[in-house]
Design a protein around this nucleic acid. Structure first.
Lengths: 186, 186
DNA sequence: TACCCATATATCGGCTCGATATATGCTCGG
DNA sequence: CCGAGCATATATCGAGCCGATATATGGGTA
């Protein structure tokens, strides 16, 4: 999703600084599907300001760099609604693990097994985080619960699949290893 | 995954042109988790050539632009192995649908329902494609089967979750709608 | 015949990420 | 009691990526 739209969406629920916009996604249950870097946010806010989609108020602070609190304008609200009305591109599971799996013969059976174990552990950590988040501190609305539950369901499905089929990947690499050894013995 | 590494990985299984490297991912069962654009491939191949990770052979063709067939070098093989040995960043489910779901009050119940229906249909199409691919034409090795099966499992989990919980999202938007109407009536 | 598609390479603008710079107060461990 | 590191807060830069566009032409289809 376009950084400009992310900013507008956050601002539609209340004024915020660039720092706070990043904070809305970098931790909490939503970091699994969306994150934004400062290198995107600040230029995006500047562009949005030029297009009059947002307005700024400066709050100089002693010592620290002054806060710049952004607010969405009615033009910005229109742009946000337009973007939401447009059709969304399909989902994408971006995952280096899958790419490596496709070429696991480069790793060999031992490293492949290590990679699988690491991925399962990683997914477990993510699942724990989302589960605890669920019972967590502040009240979670139905939308937040839906998105967080979605992540939980996907992560569980990933782990289950890897746990069930990972050995086939290792077996393929082991078979190739034997074939190479046999050829070398000739 | 770095485009340079994608190119090297494809070339490790045989010489290819830039056009063929793109073809390896843009269709077939692997497009769901990885794709590369020409705008990335050609510059990446040029850089790899400068770093002596690949070599080229030119095949001028009558009429058409000449094919440039790339081959991986031993230095390139080393770089590929290094990249595979490094730890991978965790998976990411990039999905505009989830972002919109988080802010579905901007859409209202009707549009939210439409969005959900469209997403379910879309996922169904993807599932069909992966299922048919599975029984498909050419022989699929265990690695290809693993990756393709992974996609199938994830898409099914997504669809199941949305089918089961989508109504909660719509209900939240409907409730808000009523509240707004009541406030307007005051 | 006209049009679009497949083959094939290449570049450009705009955008994104990750790293880095700047500036300061607060907290925690040694 | 002092320094390290972290939280707050903005901003910029280089490298790389995506999508669109340009170029060139043979083959198939309406």
């Amino acid at each position: 999703m376009d950084t400009k739209i992310i900013c507008l969406a956050v601002l539609s629920q209340g004024d915020a600084t660039g720092y706070e916009i990043k904070g809305a996604f970098e931790e909490g249950p939503f970091s699994y599907f969306q994150d934004v870097s400062f290198g995107s946010i600040y230029p995006a806010l500047t562009r949005a300001l030029e297009d009059e989609l947002v307005s700024v108020t400066n709050f100089p602070q002693a010592g620290r760099p002054g806060k710049k609190v952004y607010a969405i304008t009615s033009k910005g609200r229109g742009a946000l609604l337009d973007a939401f009305a447009k059709e969304t591109p399909g989902d994408k599971v971006t995952c280096d693990f899958l790419f490596k799996a496709l070429y696991s013969q480069l790793l060999g059976p031992t490293s492949t097994q290590t990679m699988i174990d690491r991925r399962v552990a990683d997914l477990g950590a993510n699942i724990d985080r989302l589960e605890n988040c669920d019972h967590g501190t502040e009240e979670m609305g139905p939308r937040e619960a839906f998105v967080s539950g979605f992540g939980l369901a996907i992560y569980r499905a990933m782990r289950a699949y890897i746990l069930e089929n990972g050995d086939k990947l290792v077996a393929a690499d082991r078979k190739l290893d034997h074939a190479v050894s046999a050829a070398a013995a000739d």
